[in-house]
Simulated scan of single mutants.
Amino acid sequence: MKETKREFTCGLDAAIAVMGGKWKGLILFALQDGPLRFGELRRTVSGISERVLIMQLREMETTGLLHREVYHQVPPKVEYSLTEFGHALNDAMAPLGQWGEDNIERIESIPWDQIR
């Protein structure tokens, strides 16, 4: 398979490419305090389907945001944890999360059905 290199217009473009989608930020947030198993992640990130969680975790592993540790035991155990790269992105997103908290009432009052 041919590897393609992607060029970005700026740092924000590159960061959004890694973050892409609704769920990755929530997964990063869920893993900030330490490793979680798949079921724990699914319960923590409410609203995500099993299929989408699997896809997002694979993409995040491919981009180097998280590490997947397989424990060869019975029953099998798999844990997901943030890499240094993932922790750095989580730290960079913290101010955005705080902005959301500070403005949540205003954001909730937006007529989203008129925007979508």
Rank of each mutant, 00 (worst) to 15 (best):
L57C: 06
R68L: 10
T62C: 15
R51A: 10
L36Q: 14
P75Q: 12
G64C: 04
V52E: 09
Q114W: 13
E69R: 14
E7A: 02
L12K: 10
W112P: 10
W112V: 15
E69P: 02
A17C: 06
D102E: 13
V52H: 07
G21F: 00
H67T: 11
I107N: 07
R43P: 00
P75E: 14
V78S: 03
V78W: 02
A30F: 09
G21E: 02
S81W: 05
K5M: 12
E69W: 08
T4S: 14
E84R: 06
G20Y: 03
F38Y: 15
T4Q: 14
M60C: 05
K2R: 13
R68V: 09
W112L: 12
P76G: 07
G47C: 00
R51V: 07
K2W: 07
A17N: 14
T63Q: 10
R58K: 14
F38A: 05
R6V: 11
S81E: 08
E79T: 15
K5G: 06
M60N: 05
H67E: 14
A94V: 05
R68E: 15
I110E: 11
Q32C: 02
D33M: 04
L66C: 01
P111V: 11
M93R: 00
K5Y: 08
G21Y: 01
A92S: 10
T63W: 13
Q32G: 01
A92Q: 09
M1R: 07
H87P: 00
M55D: 04
G86C: 09
H87Q: 14
E7Y: 08
R106S: 06
R51D: 14
M93V: 03
V52R: 12
G20W: 03
D13Q: 11
R42K: 12
E50C: 02
L65Y: 01
M60P: 04
D13G: 07
L65E: 02
I27P: 05
T83F: 04
E59A: 06
P111W: 13
F8W: 15
E105L: 08
N90Q: 12
G86K: 12
E108I: 01
Y71P: 00
P111L: 13
R42C: 00
E108Q: 08
K77S: 04
M60D: 02
T63E: 15
V70Q: 06
R42G: 00
T44V: 04
A17V: 00
V18C: 05
A17T: 13
L57D: 03
L53G: 01
L53E: 03
M60Q: 05
Y71Q: 10
G39I: 03
R106M: 05
D91V: 07
E84L: 06
A30K: 08
L12P: 00
I107E: 08
L31T: 04
W23R: 06
H87T: 12
K22W: 08
G25H: 02
R51M: 10
V78R: 06
G34F: 09
R58F: 03
I48R: 04
E3F: 11
G100P: 00
K77L: 07
V74E: 13
P35V: 06
V74H: 09
S49Q: 12
I48M: 03
E3L: 13
K2N: 14
L96Q: 06
C10K: 11
K22R: 08
T62F: 13
E108M: 09
I104Y: 02
E101N: 13
A88I: 07
L31G: 02
L57Q: 01
T44D: 03
